[in-house]
Every structure is written in structure tokens, then in C-alpha cells.
């Protein structure tokens, strides 16, 4: 069997935020903006300039599936884990991200999941 080089990593992230504080409803573009600003805060502009794709955003369960390049995975995960709030239009908006699953293969996210105790 030949080895495939995985170019991307995928993460299933659950967000916690209060919809009432937000000026508008949460959309995939806004999620991308919040995540990028979390990465800028921790690692600066160059790290946040790497591609970040929102594959799926479910407003009801606040669940996001994202794709990041392999080399940026550790930084994105660290930035999302450490993030507690983001600035939006001068207001501080508390947002917490929990990375539930991460893998180099997207189909792994559909597999059995470890229950966080």
C-alpha cells in the first residue's frame, strides 16, 4: 500500500456563545471571522493568513467542522482552546471553543466518538 500525504487536518468544534449579545445572528462567515481573530490574537497575522475552511456550521447545535492545512493545525487548535472572548465592533463577546474531534481524515469525524467525562 502506498502512503498518502495528508495535506489537511479536520476538526469538529463546538462553540459556546450567547446569541443575545451578538449584533446579528451567527453565520458561517462570522464564525470564520471569530476563529481568524482568535488565531491573530495568539500567533499573529501570518498564522491567521493560512486557509481556514468552514465545511459545516449548524446554528442549532453550535457545531462547526473546519479544515486547516496540516502545518497550521497545532496553532489553530491552540488558539481556539485558549480563546475566551473576541472583540466585535468595540464590544467584548465571550466565545468558548471546544475541539471534540480532530483527525487527518474527514471521515474519521463520522466515526465513534469519545465521551468527554
Amino acid at each position: 500500500m502506498k502512503e498518502l500525504e495528508c495535506r489537511n487536518w479536520y476538526m469538529r468544534v463546538v462553540m459556546e456563545y450567547d446569541q443575545k449579545i451578538l449584533p446579528c445572528s451567527m453565520t458561517a462567515s462570522l464564525v470564520k471571522f471569530f476563529m481568524k481573530s482568535a488565531i491573530t490574537t495568539l500567533f499573529g497575522e501570518i498564522s491567521s493568513a493560512f486557509p481556514l475552511d468552514i465545511l459545516k456550521f449548524d446554528e442549532e447545535s453550535k457545531e462547526v467542522i473546519i479544515r486547516v492545512p496540516k502545518d497550521n493545525y497545532a496553532k489553530v487548535r491552540a488558539a481556539l482552546t485558549l480563546c475566551s472572548a473576541t472583540m466585535l465592533e468595540g464590544a467584548i463577546i465571550p466565545i468558548i471553543y471546544t475541539v471534540e474531534q480532530a483527525s487527518s481524515c474527514l471521515i474519521s469525524l463520522d466515526g465513534p466518538q469519545k465521551q468527554l467525562a
Partner: peptide
């Protein structure tokens, strides 16, 4: 082999209920 990787990604997307587009959007380039 890149094609094999793309197909695996496609299988993952479809299993998770993600519909991919033809041109890409501002939030997703897949």
C-alpha cells in the same frame, strides 16, 4: 494520488452531510 485523497475527502463530506459546491465560497474552498 492526490485524486485518491480528494475522493476520500469527498466520501467524508457526504457521510457528514456536507454539500460541496462547484466554485467555492468565501468560507469554504473545498
Amino acid at each position: 494520488l492526490y485524486k485518491a485523497e480528494d475522493i476520500l475527502e469527498y466520501i467524508g463530506c457526504s457521510s457528514l452531510g456536507i454539500k460541496l459546491t462547484e466554485e467555492g465560497t468565501s468560507v469554504c474552498d473545498v
